[in-house]
Simulated scan of single mutants.
Amino acid sequence: MTQLGLPDDILACLFDLDGVVTKTAVVHAAAWKETFDAFLRERDGEDFRPFDATADYAEYVDGRPRADGVRTFLAARGIELPEGHPDDPPDAATVHGLGNRKNRLLLAKIRTEGVEPYEGTLRYVEAVRAHGLRTAIVSSSANTVDVLHSIDAEHLFDVRIDGVVAAARRLPGKPHPDTFLAAARDLGVPPARAAVFEDALAGMEAGRGGHFGYVVGIDRVGRSDALYAHGADVVVTDLAELGGKE
């Protein structure tokens, strides 16, 4: 399957959303920074150390379900908060409260700034489907349906495993492989014959942990070495580099 840059035995392609299909990773990072900086500034006062929207985002938050991102980053700072409840208000000093504050900021940014797709990815997905491969979108985001609708890309994916589906099925999020495994299962394809497309380190680990046939890292921010170290078989800056043209 040299036209697609994939091994010949691959039957399905599983795509992350933010940073792979859409240019929303930077919006997520900005929303996380605003959320964590406000919390840390109030908590730590003069000892305030801001959230790094590049390094901290990549290491602790990117690709993880929202509540896991809160827990992982705060644990790195030696902070533990009560779990709270999924419907906690955004001003609650709980894991879910901080997560909901971030989501409110994210949705406001998406409404004002809009969502743009990576055109190279859309062309690649269309080429994959033209070659008879099945496709799935696999994202920790609970806003996946709205985002895909906003770029008119719902029809490009046979299966959707997102934050809403994962919660309903009680699937642990990335770096656990369960959401990708569920997508492969819903497509009727063994993991060894499915390719994972991710930009997050947690996504690389999920692809490696699930023993998928091929793991493609998309390097949007200059961290190809880290993507390889966390499980990528190949790293590209845009999926157009893999091919997809007749």
Results as ranks from 00 to 15, higher is better:
Leu4Gln: 10
Leu4Phe: 06
Gly5Tyr: 02
Asp8Ala: 14
Ile10Gln: 03
Cys13Asn: 05
Leu14Ile: 09
Leu14Met: 04
Phe15Gln: 02
Asp16Phe: 02
Asp16Gln: 04
Val21Asp: 01
Thr22Asp: 03
Thr24His: 01
Val27Ile: 15
Ala31Asp: 03
Ala31Leu: 05
Ala31Met: 05
Trp32Ala: 02
Asp37Glu: 01
Phe39Met: 03
Leu40Asp: 00
Arg41Leu: 10
Gly45Leu: 06
Gly45Asn: 09
Phe48Pro: 10
Ala55Tyr: 02
Asp56Val: 05
Glu59Lys: 06
Tyr60Val: 13
Tyr60Gly: 11
Val61Trp: 02
Asp68Ala: 14
Asp68Met: 13
Thr72Asn: 14
Arg77Cys: 14
Gly78Ser: 09
Ile79Asn: 05
Ile79Pro: 08
Glu80His: 13
Gly84Trp: 07
His85Met: 13
Pro86Val: 05
Pro90Asp: 00
Asp91Val: 12
His96Glu: 11
Gly97Thr: 03
Gly99Cys: 10
Asn100Tyr: 00
Arg101Gln: 11
Arg101His: 07
Lys102Arg: 11
Arg104Ile: 14
Lys109Trp: 13
Ile110Asn: 07
Arg111Phe: 12
Glu113Asp: 14
Glu113Met: 10
Val115Ala: 03
Val115Asn: 01
Pro117Gly: 08
Tyr118Cys: 04
Glu119Met: 12
Glu119Ser: 11
Glu119Arg: 09
Arg123Tyr: 14
Tyr124Val: 07
Glu126Thr: 15
Glu126Pro: 06
Ala130Ser: 12
His131Leu: 13
Arg134Ile: 03
Ser140Asp: 09
Ser141Lys: 00
Ser141Gln: 10
Asn143Cys: 04
Val145Asp: 14
Asp146Val: 06
Ser150Gly: 10
Ala153Thr: 13
His155Leu: 06
Leu156Glu: 03
Val159Leu: 05
Val159Gln: 06
Val159Arg: 07
Arg160Asp: 01
Val164Thr: 14
Ala166Pro: 04
Ala168Met: 11
Leu171Val: 09
Leu171Trp: 01
Leu171Arg: 01
Gly173Arg: 08
Lys174Leu: 06
Pro175Thr: 12
Pro177Tyr: 11
Phe180Pro: 11
Leu181Trp: 09
Ala183Val: 09
Arg185Trp: 01
Gly188Pro: 08
Pro191Phe: 03
Arg193Ala: 05
Val196Asp: 04
Glu198Met: 00
Asp199Ser: 00
Asp199Glu: 06
Leu201Thr: 12
Ala202His: 06
Ala202Arg: 09
Ala202Phe: 02
Gly203Gln: 09
Glu205Asn: 07
Ala206Cys: 08
Gly207Cys: 05
Arg208Lys: 12
Gly210Ile: 04
Gly210Phe: 15
Gly210Trp: 15
Gly213Cys: 11
Gly213Glu: 03
Gly213Val: 14
Tyr214Asp: 00
Gly217Phe: 02
Gly217Ala: 03
Asp219Glu: 02
Arg223Val: 13
Ser224Gly: 07
Asp225Glu: 12
Ala229Pro: 03
Ala229Ile: 07
Ala232Phe: 04
Asp233Asn: 10
Thr237Ile: 02
Asp238Pro: 03
Asp238Gln: 04
Asp238Phe: 00
Gly243Glu: 07
Gly244Tyr: 15
Lys245Ser: 15
Glu246Val: 13
